[in-house]
């Protein structure tokens, strides 16, 4: 039975291979942190100095003493939270409607929503850009939030979850004289908390890391989200104040989401895998 016990333990060979792979994973991150902790002048002479002391926090100080990075962070936060709350509200309502209510055209409408799952962003982004220009929505929070609310995945996801709740609950509540609305709000919605958490984490992360749409919609630097701001920083690298400062921005931008990841690792991994395997 040696083979069986083996399957539950990491062999030395596997451990060596994994450690090597982990090094490849971590080395670029450590290099980024090392560069961010060096003075720009020293890096200008030779970036090889990043391997050794002296290290300094001057680049982080420069970020904290008023740079645009803060307003980008705030924009990202507003857009991601707005998108997440909007998606949760819209998709809970619609998911319930499709799962529980009978009305003419329900099947056809649900198929229409499902078809949207196959539409990549590239197929709609140009006309959407024109539409938002016509409506004067570029460089605004609604302009950045609204496209995220039209994604069909959440409706499909919530409808599936509502279908899994026993119908006896509805019947009991309706017998007690509850209205459709009370039934939804007081009885069923609290039961969908796990699905809300998964959909919420997934939506927040997708919105936080979105690049294509904010790149073309938010063209004024005070409306940049963090992703677009960092893109402009690296494209204007030649004119900015140095490599160390640039890398400090990368670390500063990565930290919030890495902290969230460290805290909610189980939920994030579950949400992303669940969304992919739909």
């Amino acid at each position: 039975m040696k083979g069986l016990a083996d399957r539950h333990r990491l062999t030395p060979l596997a451990l060596a291979g994994l450690s090597l792979a982990a090094l490849v994973m971590v080395a670029p991150l450590l290099w980024t942190v090392a560069l961010s902790l060096k003075s720009n002048a020293e890096l200008m002479r030779d970036s090889g100095t990043a391997f050794s002391a002296p290290y300094t926090l001057e680049n982080y100080r420069a970020i904290l003493q008023g740079s645009q990075v803060f307003s980008w962070l705030l924009n990202s936060l507003i857009v991601s939270l707005g998108t997440t709350l909007g998606v949760l509200a819209l998709c809970s309502l619609a998911g319930y409607g499709f799962a529980r209510l009978e009305f003419p055209g329900r099947r056809a409408l649900f198929v229409l929503v499902l078809l949207g799952l196959a539409v990549p962003e590239q197929a709609v982004i140009l006309p959407r850009h024109q539409l938002f220009a016509d409506l004067g929505l570029h460089n605004s929070y609604p302009g950045l939030i609204l496209p995220g609310l039209a994604a069909p995945f959440g409706v499909f996801f919530m409808a599936q979850y509502f279908r899994g709740i026993p119908r006896e609950l509805d019947e009991a509540a309706l017998l007690d004289g509850a209205s459709r609305w009370t039934l939804f709000w007081k009885v069923l919605l609290p039961l969908t908390w796990p699905a809300q958490a998964t959909l919420g984490v997934f939506t927040f992360l997708a919105s936080w890391n979105d690049y294509w749409w904010p790149l073309i919609s938010a063209t004024r630097s005070d409306r940049f989200t963090l992703t677009v701001g960092l893109a402009s920083s690296q494209m204007n690298y030649a004119q900015t104040s140095g490599l160390g400062y640039l890398m400090a921005q990368a670390v500063f931008a990565a930290l919030p989401i890495l902290i969230v990841y460290a805290l909610f690792q189980k939920q994030i991994v579950g949400a992303m895998a669940g969304a992919a395997a739909r």
């Binding site: 890391n209 690049y211 963090l226 960092l230 893109a231 990841y261």
Partner: peptide
Amino acid sequence: VLSVTIITLIWRF
């Protein structure tokens, strides 16, 4: 969990 712009900053250098 990192965005594409952070990835490219890291990999550029």
